[in-house]
Design a protein around this nucleic acid. Sequence first.
DNA 1: ATAAGGCTTCCAGTCACTGGAGGCTCAATA
DNA 2: TATTGAGCCTCCAGTGACTGGAAGCCTTAT
Lengths: 135, 135
Amino acid sequence: MNIGEVAERSGIPPKTIRYYEEIDLVRPQRSGNGYRDFRETDLHKLAFLGRARALGFSIKDCRILLGLYEDESRESAQVKAVAEEHLTAIDDKIAQLQSMRETLSHLVRSCHGDDRPDCPILSDLAGKADLPEGG
Amino acid sequence: MNIGEVAERSGIPPKTIRYYEEIDLVRPQRSGNGYRDFRETDLHKLAFLGRARALGFSIKDCRILLGLYEDESRESAQVKAVAEEHLTAIDDKIAQLQSMRETLSHLVRSCHGDDRPDCPILSDLAGKADLPEGG
DNA sequence: ATAAGGCTTCCAGTCACTGGAGGCTCAATA
DNA sequence: TATTGAGCCTCCAGTGACTGGAAGCCTTAT
């Protein structure tokens, strides 16, 4: 299989697949013409990677997960640990974004947004409390 | 003011302040000895940047916001537009993370996480539906 | 005189790609 | 058979927003 077909079937762009080879996530063989020659197992690996990345796992985590996937004597606890840690990281990010969101939406709501220059958003960023504290 | 004091008072590390100068966000003067010499206005700008960055605004947005801040004839609508766009981007990110979170927490819950090798997390990543669909 | 700490610049690394240039190979068509 | 055009190759550079480290000057205190 050439890279184009693999890209289509795995949903991962050719550039990214080449990058994954560069960092040793996949090791396709080569045809006589120098083209990469992918097997079904390579395709599976790439699809695996695509799903793991879509869940937000880092490349480092993907490497670990792939390793566990290919290790038949793995313990599911190891997989779960990786996933739980990632889940915690996601929760942290969500919390951080929600905190930003709250502050920002407050500010947006308090800004009249017309042709006048006074703006509570800028006042807040400038460090001047300009909003009613009591909410 | 030397960079150390500005760093302390603005909460932005010296490295980052130097970086901000490099990309022309601040333009401190120089003392005879080559040291950066910050004014109060520089400090205010940096504090402004710190707050904007803490709200997740990109450097590009920060540049725009700073420009609006310093433009006394701005219209608050311009500021609000930048903020609203950012708010939308935040909402998108939150939604994406929550979707990941949901899938992932499902998988984590379904994995027994012991010394046995079978693992629904890996099965899912491998593309084999292994979970009860009905929840 | 010396030592510690702060300041300087410059270079490289992070993360996970992505874009583009320049050039080879392959399949189909005139 | 010549020529397109698409697909493939490698290599280099850029993204965003810093961050770490090396090598070296400046200042302050002892």
